[in-house]
Amino acid sequence: MSEEKILLAHGSGGKLSHDLIQKLFLPLFLNPPFEPLDDSAEIPDQKKRLAFTTDSYVVNPLFFPGGDIGKLAVCGTVNDLSMKGAIPSYLSLSFIIEEGFPIELLKKIISSIHATAKVAGVKIVTGDTKVVEHGAADQLFINTAGIGWIKEGVSLSSKNARPGDAILLSGYIGDHEMAILSQREGFQFQEALKSDCAPLNDLVQKMLDVCPAIRCMRDPTRGGLATILNEIASMSNVGIVIEEEKIPIRESVRGISELLGLDPLYLANEGKLICICPSGAEGDLLKVMRSHPLGKEAHLIGKVTEENRKKVVLKTLIGGHRILDMLTGSQYPRIC
């Protein structure tokens, strides 16, 4: 019994390509009036401020606890749009597949994309599939691009942080990278550690509803909390102080980090956000965040300061201070 495999001809543009699209993609991604087989999608909406982003997904392994490359490809792009305050609307979806890839797995990935897009309320309106010869790519890569509309009165940017602002974090950090690492290394847990991979657009809109004056939102993906805070400090020309004891980290994530000598502050997340808001707004925002399933463990973790410009300072558990630098190098490649 031979398993169905992706062949080079599946990406040739000929009959097999057509079959693949007709059978696998179209049943899930028909969004009238969009005509998915046209060379490009026509976007009818004509609102003022458009957010547009793209990202490629190369995570290894393709399936991991709490998600898979398909779910990640939707969440990642939806979250990038959301961090700009945009309401994500349309996504493009593009595959690069290694010849020989099992069609059964491709099906699983596509249905995961479909399910996640539904949860996030986005439509996949255009796409592409290329197949490369064996060895020219590792199994399967995905690229998604996304478009969203930014509401009137909302302006989020890493340049907007001002001294006195509060810094909020939406929950446990490090789950995604640790879940991937654990899957790859065959680590076991008392309770399964799952990636936090999730679309943040609903949480973001609820936060913007209660506080349209939010200055900046970022999702701490590669490089983790420490790296993203450094970017904000540097782009806004401000200092940032955070308190180690306020940062939510799961016990098991701390356990492996201690054992392997990793710092959770640099681990990647795929369903968390950092929010910088004017001082005074943090109470209302925390209330909204904690009542949302993706923000239950939200915390006020620090503040923006006048001093230590372009630097992030961590107040340690025992009351000492240290500079938190950006991530330098990476021990574990291909986490997203």
Binding site: L314, T316, L317, I318, G319, G320, H321, R322
Partner: peptide, 9 residues
């Protein structure tokens, strides 16, 4: 020592 900022304390 560095991670907990002990020198500065």
């Amino acid at each position: 020592i560095f991670r907990y900022g002990i020198r500065g304390l």
